[in-house]
């Protein structure tokens, strides 16, 4: 499989007053197209920082990130926005739907930013909302839906632009275990169907066990990387 993300010597250092806090230190990682990858670690391990830097939400202090051979850290704000529109979907822990917009309007937001026509937007949004199992909640506002339903809308919003890479930041963190499983199944099937790369941050080993690749992160460093083999067990490489 082709490499889609290549991280070399990545470091992120925060300055808090006069003190330096090292969030990421010398991370080297390569992710393949169509892969489901989990960043596993405890809170404060730096897994979320890694995701944010990958998604271009934060600039790295050192090192480089190439997504589809584009050095993300060097892009201007405008190019970055364009890059996100084309290539990236994002799923949040607390769903982050816009409260005054209904499901269809929320899902069509990324298409609105792209400048798509209203007709196209609505068609694509309805299609994907049906695909995530919410055909009867098209006109519902977020406050009229359960957590699981809201996250389904969030997933629909992330996948509606057909991105190559979908980032998910603890997507099941606010859900009960049954709903968590359903949501996880949905994300995996949507990304596998179209050979999309799914990168998820979690602290839950049971969720991580569903991934093709588990990246263990500890104190800002990649501790080890395990890949699932054909038997379903993981081996370190």
């Amino acid at each position: 499989m082709d490499s889609i993300i290549k991280i070399t010597n990545l470091s992120k250092i925060y300055r808090v007053g006069s003190e330096k806090v090292v969030a990421l230190q010398d991370v080297n990682l390569e992710l393949k197209k169509g892969e489901f990858c989990c960043f596993l670690g405890t809170s404060g391990s730096g897994k979320s920082t890694l995701l944010n830097v990958l998604a271009g939400l934060e600039k790295p202090s050192k090192g480089s990130i190439k997504i589809k051979n584009v050095p993300v850290e060097k892009l201007s704000e405008k190019k970055l926005a364009e890059f996100r529109q084309k290539n990236i979907g994002f799923i949040f822990q607390s769903y982050n739907l816009v409260n005054y917009l209904n499901a269809v309007e929320n899902v069509s937001l990324p298409l609105v930013f792209k400048g798509a026509s209203k007709k196209e937007r609505i068609k694509k949004s309805i299609d994907i909302l049906k695909a995530v199992g919410l055909p009867r909640h098209l006109r519902h506002k977020p406050t009229q839906m359960s957590g699981g339903q809201q996250q389904r809308v969030g997933i629909a919003r992330a996948f509606v632009t057909n991105p190559d890479i979908v980032f998910a930041d603890e997507p099941t963190g606010n859900l009960d275990s049954k709903t968590s499983k359903e949501v996880l199944d949905l994300m995996i099937s949507l990304s596998k169907e179209n050979d999309r790369t799914l990168i998820m941050v979690t602290h839950d080993i049971n969720i991580a066990k569903r991934a093709d690749k588990i990246v263990y992160i500890l104190d800002g460093k990649v501790e080890r990387v395990e890949e699932r083999n054909v038997e379903g067990t993981y081996e370190q490489n």
Partner: peptide
């Protein structure tokens, strides 16, 4: 959020 979703 809208920035993350790709709004200029």
């Amino acid at each position: 959020v809208i920035k993350v979703l790709g709004c200029y």
